[in-house]
Design a protein around this nucleic acid. Structure first.
Length: 347
DNA sequence: CATCCGTGGAG
DNA sequence: TCTCCAAGGAT
């Protein structure tokens, strides 16, 4: 199905474009908790949580509200210990975000006297805050003019201007940011940036968009919106197997605290090589994805083995009731729960 | 510039 | 079941 092409681009009539977008947003903009505040700390928490993470996850599973209750201000987050910090983030993924958010809080406390810098460069200097998040913080919290480009904006702009260049290239990124800056409504940066992003979630969504009721369809150049945006690199998924032990002794489970690197500080079931688990009965198996891997997790029953002698660095016994308190990635937690529940039903 | 970093919702 | 990919940033 072909969509008509407009004669004018948004840049041909920028004021008309801004007015149409703003008018639509003021009538239809959604009511998110982070839009009810201008506290830069609360806005930053939402933005970091929403990096590569859907609104439904952050909101629906209560991460945002819970985090702000636990760490209500910059000072409380700056003082946070690893465990409660990661616990508040458990299940959100990209756990480095939580640490960098805390680093930002510490920088605000130590280098800015406890209040966020009001300049774009100062925000960009904070750990974990890149070009997008700096623009979001600047415009959402302070209503000051800075462009932003996220996945939504890239899709909207690629379609409005019918740009089929791959968005994951330096040249296209430069064009996107440049265009976002030219289009920005400098009188209403908060509304403009919110509206552009929300347009990308509602009408100009991925796949087949809803052009019929789009508030800025009169400015849209593409005939085939579903073909945009173009992405050059396709991620190659690698299949791997993971073998872990499931050892319960005297009401305690053998767990392993992760060292430097991926999932640092979190607890997992003890990992072993395929040859090391040969002969052990398979208790449970499940699949999960992590970055470019598709992992098949195998849980091996170690009830008959000599578990203590196999202890390795980071491994120790965790009383079963403690499992709720420590930080465990969802795949391991789900596997543990499944096995424990099954055992309980038998008993 | 390429790669790494999680997870889950939706088609 | 499978694929895509979401309010990105650091290295």
């Amino acid at each position: 199905m072909l969509k008509p092409i407009s004669r004018q681009t948004p840049l041909d009539a920028p004021e008309a474009f801004r007015a149409a977008l703003r008018g639509w947003f003021e009538q239809n903009g959604r009511d998110y908790p982070w839009r009810r505040t201008t506290d830069p700390y609360a806005v930053l928490v939402s933005e970091v949580m929403l990096q590569q993470t859907q609104i439904a996850t952050v909101l629906g599973r209560g991460f945002y509200t819970r985090f702000l209750e636990r760490f209500p201000d910059v000072a409380s987050l700056a003082a946070a210990e690893d465990e409660p910090l990661l616990k508040a983030w458990e299940g959100l993924g990209y756990y480095r975000r939580a640490r960098m958010l805390r680093e930002s809080a510490r920088a605000v406390m130590q280098q800015h006297g406890g209040s966020f810098p009001r300049d774009h460069a100062g925000l960009l200097d904070l750990p974990g805050i890149g070009r997008y998040t700096a623009g979001a913080l600047f415009s959402f919290a302070f209503d000051l003019p800075a462009p932003l480009v996220d996945g939504n904006v890239a899709r909207v702009l690629a379609r409005l201007f019918d740009r089929a260049d791959p968005v994951d290239t330096g040249a296209m990124q430069k064009w996107l940011w440049n265009t976002a800056e030219q289009l920005l409504d400098r009188e209403h940066p908060r509304i403009f940036n919110s509206a552009l992003m929300e347009l990308g979630q509602t009408h100009c969504r991925p796949g087949v968009p809803d052009c019929l009721s789009c508030p800025v369809s009169a400015f849209c150049q593409t005939r085939e919106p579903s073909a945009l945006p173009v992405k050059a690199k396709k991620q190659v998924i690698k299949e791997i197997d993971e073998h872990v032990l499931f050892v319960v002794d005297q009401g305690r489970l053998l767990m392993c605290q992760q060292g430097k690197g991926r999932r640092e500080g979190m607890w997992r079931l003890p990992v072993r090589g395929k040859d090391e688990v040969a002969g052990l009965p398979l208790l449970h198996r499940r699949k999960y994805g992590i970055t470019r891997y598709r992992v098949t997790l195998h849980l091996h029953d170690c009830a008959q083995g000599p578990p203590v002698a196999t202890h390795r660095a980071g491994e120790c016994w965790v009383p079963l009731p403690e499992l709720a308190r420590i930080v465990i990635p969802p795949a391991d937690r789900a596997a543990i729960t499944a096995v424990l529940d099954a055992a309980e039903e038998i008993a």
